[in-house]
């Protein structure tokens, strides 16, 4: 990707982030930034802390050290629901829909609780509805009865219902058939085109990098490299990146 004339402002930034579940930290001093309107993908081997990082940004895990900022506003003290209302939407990897509620109810909840004081006239914004036509026919189905791919779409749609500033996706293509997988990345691109900045964690690195602007490499709880996605795509062996120490230049 060629250099833009002026780099975009950072909409989401993490500085020196430490977090973990038990005694030790899983992420140790992570610096990461998401440019406005960009798609950034985080790759790394299993156990590198990718999910932990996203959960910490979402507010499900407290940041033990470090700062999280959304458009310059410090998020550390905000609870997860408040961060949602500030404009960060998060789609977990698994259990990302309310299985005992219907598709319609899932969307209603998103509409009712994710936006602060926005109008609630339509359950699904027309643009978003256009993105997920298949949901229209399944309004009354219990989310637990949908197929894996349909659930993923529903989770995605819920996160978009109140047009977030930032959308964070944890392995959106996990467990999906190839058809759904390319569908997911296609939708991610289109959502980005609507103005939503996207931060993704992905195992299917190549597919994700194809639509991304920037790639962050995370291994062992630390950032090993940050580079334009196209550069990383060009590399034959991603493993060397995982062992790296240096931080490449941004964008």
């Amino acid at each position: 990707m060629s250099h833009p004339l002026s780099p975009p402002a950072e909409i989401l930034r993490a500085t020196g982030l430490h977090a973990g579940y038990g005694a030790g930290d899983i992420i140790k001093g992570v610096d990461a930034a998401l440019g406005q309107g960009r798609i950034v993908t985080i790759i790394g081997p299993n156990g590198s802390g990718k999910s932990t990082l996203i959960k910490t940004l979402a507010g499900l895990l407290p940041a033990r050290q470090g700062e999280i900022e959304l458009e310059g506003q410090r998020l550390n003290e905000l609870s997860a629901p408040k961060r949602v209302r500030a404009g960060i939407a998060y789609v977990p990897q698994e259990y990302n829909v309310f299985r005992n509620l219907t598709v319609l109810e899932n969307l209603q909840i998103a509409r009712e609780f994710m936006g602060a004081g926005r109008s609630h006239h339509r359950v699904l914004d027309d643009e978003v509805a256009g993105l997920f036509p298949e949901l229209g026919t399944h309004h009354k189905t219990q989310a637990g009865n949908l197929s894996g791919g349909q659930r993923q779409m529903l989770a995605f749609a819920c996160a978009l219902t109140v047009r977030p500033k930032v959308l964070m996706l944890d392995e959106p293509s996990a467990g999906l058939s190839p058809k759904y997988m390319s569908d997911v990345f296609d939708k991610v691109k289109r959502v980005n085109a609507m103005g939503v900045s996207i931060l993704m964690v992905e195992q299917n690195a190549r597919e994700a990098l194809r639509i991304s602007h920037t790639c962050i490499v995370l291994a062992g709880g630390r950032v090993r490299a940050v580079a334009p996605a196209s550069e990383v795509l060009g590399m034959k062996d991603l493993n060397s990146l995982y062992l790296g120490d240096a931080q490449a230049t941004l964008h």
Partner: peptide, 24 residues
Amino acid sequence: SPMGRAMRAVADNPSLALVRGIES
């Protein structure tokens, strides 16, 4: 009602409820 749905959502999946903006 929204609160009724929220109650059912929390019963179904508390952490997902949090990231869907429901204040526990």
